[in-house]
Simulated scan of single mutants.
Amino acid sequence: MRLKLKGLRPFESQLRTGEIAREVNLVWNFCNELSLKVWQPEQRFLAGYNFHPFTNGSSKAGLGLRSQTIQAIGEEYAVRRKQACKVKLPWRLSSPA
Rank of each mutant, 00 (worst) to 15 (best):
W39H: 15
F45K: 15
Q14S: 12
L93H: 14
Q83I: 11
A84G: 06
G62C: 10
K88E: 12
E76S: 05
T69Q: 10
A61I: 03
Y49S: 06
Q71V: 00
H52V: 05
Q68D: 04
L63V: 10
L34T: 09
V79A: 11
N56H: 14
N56S: 14
Y77D: 05
F45C: 06
S13C: 05
A61P: 04
K4S: 13
W28T: 05
P53Y: 11
L93V: 07
V79N: 05
I73H: 02
E76N: 09
P53Q: 10
W39P: 08
G64K: 08
K37R: 15
E19G: 08
L3C: 01
L3G: 00
G74A: 02
A84F: 13
F30A: 12
G48W: 12
S95I: 08
G48C: 14
L15M: 13
R16Q: 09
K4A: 12
R92G: 03
N29I: 06
E23I: 03
T55I: 01
R66Q: 06
N29W: 06
V79H: 10
E33P: 04
S94V: 03
G48K: 03
K6F: 01
L65T: 10
V87W: 07
A84K: 11
N32W: 01
L65N: 06
I20K: 11
A21D: 04
R44Y: 04
S67N: 08
Y49M: 15
L93M: 04
E23M: 10
S13V: 02
S94I: 12
L63D: 05
P10L: 04
N25F: 03
W28G: 00
